[in-house]
């Protein structure tokens, strides 16, 4: 029952990404290309997703616990640090080069297109290298600024 629910939740996400255009790099790059072939569609994706989640979370997070788990797993940090900002800046560069973000590319794997598989393998390589770097940095003493 739990796994069926989780599967269907993933499916709703995958269908949403598919019909929204987030799985299409051409559309995504055009959203950012205001000076060229601009396509504002993705503002509607982000806007729709954000408004629905904002309202839904108000109700869900008021409950004492989720239905199929002991507690809500929410990030607790609120401080801004260098890895967050630099990492996000670097992510944007990769997104602007490729037109794929992870949330768009993972459902797009279902189309079986070789370009998507290529992107996801490169993505996994990047995540792996970053994890190795993170564990190397964690072993060193924290940098004093």
């Amino acid at each position: 029952m739990r796994l069926i629910s989780l599967y269907l939740i993933g499916l709703v996400f995958g269908v949403g990404i598919s019909i929204s255009g987030m799985a299409n790099p051409a559309k995504l790059l055009n959203f950012f290309d205001i000076a060229g072939t601009w396509d504002p569609s993705l503002a509607f994706v982000m806007g729709g997703a954000l408004i629905v989640t904002f309202i839904g979370y108000r109700f869900v997070l008021k409950r004492p616990a989720p239905m199929m788990s002991e507690s809500f797993q929410l990030p607790t940090r609120r401080d801004l640090d260098l890895p967050l900002i630099a990492g996000s800046a670097v992510f944007g560069i990769g997104w602007g080069i490729s037109g794929f973000c992870p949330g768009g590319a993972l459902p797009a794997l279902g189309t079986g297109r070789i370009e998507v598989v290529t992107f996801v393998i490169a993505l996994l390589a990047g995540i792996f290298v970053a994890k190795v770097l993170q564990s190397m940095l964690a072993k060193r003493a924290p940098v004093q600024i």
């Binding site: 890895p83 967050l84 900002i85 630099a86 990492g87 996000s88 800046a89 670097v90 992510f91 944007g92 560069i93 990769g94 997104w95 602007g96 080069i97 490729s98 037109g99 794929f100 973000c101 992870p102 590319a105 290529t118 992107f119 996801v120 393998i121 490169a122 993505l123 996994l124 390589a125 990047g126 995540i127 792996f128 290298v129 970053a130 994890k131 993170q134």
Partner: peptide, 12 residues
């Protein structure tokens, strides 16, 4: 792009 996205989203 994919490799750079992987680095960025992990640190970010």
């Amino acid at each position: 792009g994919g490799f750079i996205v992987g680095l960025g989203v992990t640190f970010g």
